[in-house]
């Protein structure tokens, strides 16, 4: 049995027939080709699959696709504005915050939510924002450096409507 799921991804409408057990991550990656969100654990522990649903970060690997009916989903691919990287994306690059890059999309999405809600975060705020995003390469230090640098950027808010 399939149901029609209608929602938006990065501002563009999407209509997909999905089964009741399909996850948002399955639909984004395997059906719609948004492979920015990564499959790292499928139990909601590692955070590599983090996306925003109506501005709130969720683990798309443990979110049933049909629960986002009518909602706005933003993935890491949707954070750029006018062809320019989101300040967090630029700051990750500038500060060496990614190594293998597998956790990076989830990290950036979690931090984008933080900057929307808290324009002047301290380092501990940034740590708490990524507490559910695992990284095995960087030791997190440069990720937090990048978050602080992005927080100083005038264009830190935004993302597609």
């Amino acid at each position: 049995m399939k149901y029609m799921l209608s929602f938006t991804v990065n501002g563009a409408p999407a209509d997909v027939a999905v089964g009741p057990t399909e996850t948002l991550l399955d639909v984004l990656r395997d059906r719609l080709g948004f492979t920015g969100a990564k499959r790292g654990c499928e139990t909601g522990d590692c955070g590599a699959c983090t996306v925003l649903v109506d501005g709130r970060s969720v683990r798309s690997c443990i979110t049933l696709a049909l629960t986002v009916q009518g909602k706005a989903v933003t993935t890491v691919e949707g954070l750029a504005r006018d062809g320019k990287p989101h300040p967090l994306q630029q700051a990750f690059h500038d500060h060496g915050a990614s190594q293998c890059g597998f956790c990076t999309p989830g990290m950036i999405v979690s931090l984008a939510e933080l900057l929307e809600k808290n324009p002047e975060p301290c380092r501990d705020d940034a740590r708490a924002a990524i507490a559910g995003n695992l990284c095995r390469c960087t030791g997190y230090v440069k990720i937090i450096d990048a978050a602080m640098a992005a927080a100083r950027s005038p264009h830190k808010k935004g993302g597609p409507a």
């Binding site: 060496g96 190594q99 095995r136 390469c137 960087t138 030791g139 997190y140 230090v141 440069k142």
Partner: peptide, 9 residues
């Protein structure tokens, strides 16, 4: 530095 920090953690 990235190797040092990552290795430490």
């Amino acid at each position: 530095e990235g190797q040092i920090q990552g290795g430490a953690v």
